[in-house]
Design a protein around this nucleic acid. Structure first.
Lengths: 112, 112
DNA sequence: CCAACCTGTCAGCATTATCTGACAGGGGGG
DNA sequence: CCCCCCTGTCAGATAATGCTGACAGGTTGG
């Protein structure tokens, strides 16, 4: 679901999710194929709970999809797939998204 | 200079710079035309030193250009212009940028 | 001299984000 | 039983950000 014009909040969520070296690396790793938490932790050499947290942030931003696959025997593995996203960052796309940012009281008044 | 393939660090810098509601709003405001610190602070209703800091971050990421214009009489105003940027965010572009991230020791080893 | 406009910089506080080790619980198998 | 694999969650330490009021210094104009 590569949206044309994301809402301000969605845009912000995606940006915040990607603004981290760890999470960028996670995305890059998943671009080569699905994986699961423990394997990824070994591969990227990072603490598992830490990776877990980062994956949750990516998932919250809908950049990644995690599915807990419980085998017939009962053992479970949580697979993570990269969501196919694509967004363009330009002054125009940002200006278009900003008005829909939900925050307290902010208004435009004078210019110049 | 809308780069085709930004380095990992550049990408990260831009993402980090934009991952803030304030800074998104600043970019949107500047998209309507140049302005200077005090005027922008009034317009966006935010603390001037705070805005100043955000502008510096945007400038560091090269999303914004500030020029201190000292009039012939000596009074000075620092104008900020939006830099014409454009970058596309997809799993591919990210995967392409990640290998050039400069951080301590990280390597890829096994997969799956 | 005082007021109003501008820029730039600080110390210090408040709030988030990041990161770690440890734990609980679920599955196999030897 | 013990050992190894997996998931998920916590408290708590540490580091990074965000934010504020106040100050110094420059100019113009009444």
């Amino acid at each position: 679901m590569s949206r044309e014009t994301p809402s301000g909040d969605e845009l912000l969520a995606v940006l915040a999710a990607l603004a981290s070296p760890h999470r960028l690396r996670i995305v890059a790793a998943l671009a080569e194929g699905r994986s699961y938490v423990s394997a990824l932790a070994r591969r990227l050499r990072m603490n598992r709970p830490l990776l877990y947290m980062h994956l949750q942030k990516l998932e919250a931003a809908e950049l990644v999809v995690g599915t807990l696959e419980t085998a017939p025997d009962g053992s479970s593995v949580k697979w993570f797939d990269l969501a196919p996203f694509a967004l363009t960052l330009t002054p125009q796309t940002i200006a278009a998204a900003v008005p829909t940012l939900t925050v307290p009281g902010q208004k435009d008044e004078d210019s110049q």
